[in-house]
């Protein structure tokens, strides 16, 4: 497995950037102007955001320019706002954002459907190129997807049939109780059944 060493004399530019002064602190300690310490620099003009921009609580002021792509919205947006109450050092900050990202995918599908567009998921996942350059992989994935789909459909179908059987069984089992109730309905309470008709005074014929 050992390979021949490369002859450095054949390499254009070998060693031209060798810098004995390059040390691990460069350029982190390349500070010549002490005036730049702290938030003292002359700031660029400030952008006025026209959309909601979430801000890390580790910033004590909004940066001079901000990105305006895809402002927070919907349930994912609410989760993102909550996540930004926590610092970048807090694991929950990132986990909440990851959770919001996943919810946002569902929101994206709903948004597409609401706009009358059914997302072409295979095309979005590059199915055409998979077919062109990796037919075996395409067939394997397609087969696996179909198999999983068939299993899911079979499970759902079986559950539906089970439920239908159960419903039918419940109907049959419930019938006698219903009938009993009907039979019981006209039965008078014992005290009434055994009571005598007491003629009211003054109503005698």
């Amino acid at each position: 497995m050992a390979q021949a060493l490369v002859d450095t004399s054949t390499i254009p530019g070998w060693g031209v950037d060798t810098d004995p002064k390059n040390n691990p602190t460069y350029p982190m300690r390349h500070i010549e102007d002490q005036k730049t310490r702290g938030l003292t620099w002359h700031r660029p003009p400030l952008q006025e955001p026209q959309v909601e921009v979430l801000q890390s609580i580790e910033h004590n002021r909004l940066p001079a320019v901000v990105g305006t792509s895809t402002p927070p919205s919907g349930l994912s947006g609410a989760i993102r706002r909550y996540a930004f109450r926590r610092s970048e050092s807090d694991w929950w900050h990132w986990l909440l954002l990851m959770g919001a990202d996943r919810i946002n995918v569902v929101e994206g599908v709903i948004e597409d459907l609401a706009a009358g567009k059914v997302p072409n998921v295979p095309a979005e996942m590059g199915a055409k190129s998979e077919w062109q350059h990796n037919k075996n992989g395409f067939l394997l994935k397609a087969g696996a997807t179909l198999a999983i789909g068939a299993v899911l459909v079979a499970i759902v179908q079986a559950r539906r049939e089970d439920r239908a059987d159960e419903d039918e069984g419940e109907t049959i089992a419930a019938e006698p109780a219903h009938v009993t109730a009907r039979v019981d309905e006209p039965v008078l309470p014992a005290d009434l059944a055994t009571s005598q008709v007491v003629p009211l005074p003054g109503l005698d014929a």
């Binding site: 921009v53 979430l54 890390s56 580790e58 901000v66 990105g67």
Partner: peptide, 9 residues
């Protein structure tokens, strides 16, 4: 430090 509102890192 003047270009990312969402993170300081």
């Amino acid at each position: 430090h003047e270009s990312n509102a969402q993170a300081t890192a």
